[in-house]
């Protein structure tokens, strides 16, 4: 069975940048786990620019991992979680990600509805945003996501029918928009000169829909 005998230390001989890249595809739990492999691996995980929490962590662990993370900038911050988390706690995490110039943010709450922090709507570095089971999308105040290209909203709550269009108006380069189960909106309006791909799932409710995009 074990006839292959790697004579060189294949993975450890790779430059740190390559090993970091491999780890960046792992959920954070598994990238932290590689610290046990050997000395050269001990702190590598803390330089991985992706933080992907998939329901194995409690708040204390997430806080600890974030505190120990040394990446200058965060590429992806993803929270696919079942934890009960206060609005204050979520704001702390999102603020951390924004401070590190996050490009992709996924907030996916499985059972608990989560209350979104306002700072999320003025993040200048965000390119891709995915929200599930959280809210509310505001109707007033600053909404400015100058780099946002992709926006996915599933079971998201809106302050009012106009919230969706208010959010879209703050995204001058938005190309892709997916809305799933926007039953909370009676009159759904999407108007954008930049959207190239638009998917709206209208389950739950006889909504009225107005679309004005090049898509």
């Amino acid at each position: 069975m074990e006839q292959n005998k790697p004579s060189i230390d294949r993975l450890s001989s790779l430059p740190d940048s390559v090993r970091r890249r491999i780890l960046s595809f792992l959920p954070t739990k598994f990238s932290v786990r590689t610290s046990i492999l050997a000395r050269r691996w001990r702190y590598l995980w803390s330089y991985v620019p992706n933080l992907i929490f998939v329901n194995w962590e409690n708040q204390e662990i997430i806080n600890r991992v974030m505190l120990l993370n040394k990446s200058q900038s965060i590429h992806t911050f993803a929270l696919y979680h079942n934890i009960e988390c206060s609005a204050y706690q979520l704001e702390t995490w999102v603020t951390f990600a924004i401070t590190r110039r996050v490009r992709r943010l996924d907030l996916y709450f499985q059972s608990q509805f989560a209350s979104l922090p306002r700072c999320l709507f003025t993040c200048k570095t965000l390119v891709c945003l995915r929200l599930e089971n959280c809210g509310h999308i505001p109707t007033s105040g600053a909404v400015c996501l100058p780099r946002l290209e992709k926006l996915y909203l599933t079971y998201v709550l809106y302050e009012a029918d106009e919230s969706l269009q208010y959010l879209i108006s703050g995204c001058p380069v938005l190309e892709e928009l997916e809305i799933d189960s926007c039953g909370a909106i009676a009159h759904c309006k999407v108007s954008s000169p930049t959207i190239k791909r638009l998917v709206i799932d209208l389950r739950w409710g006889g909504n009225r829909l107005d679309i004005n995009t090049p898509a």
Partner: peptide
């Protein structure tokens, strides 16, 4: 690079520490 890295990560994720060390010839120097 990205495709291969993702594939390696996908394989590593489900394996034990011992398996990863063995397959990649990583010497445990702890």
């Amino acid at each position: 690079m990205d495709a291969v890295s993702a594939k390696i990560a996908q394989v590593m994720e489900k394996k034990s520490v011992g398996w990863v060390r063995r397959k990649f010839g990583i010497e445990n120097d702890y």
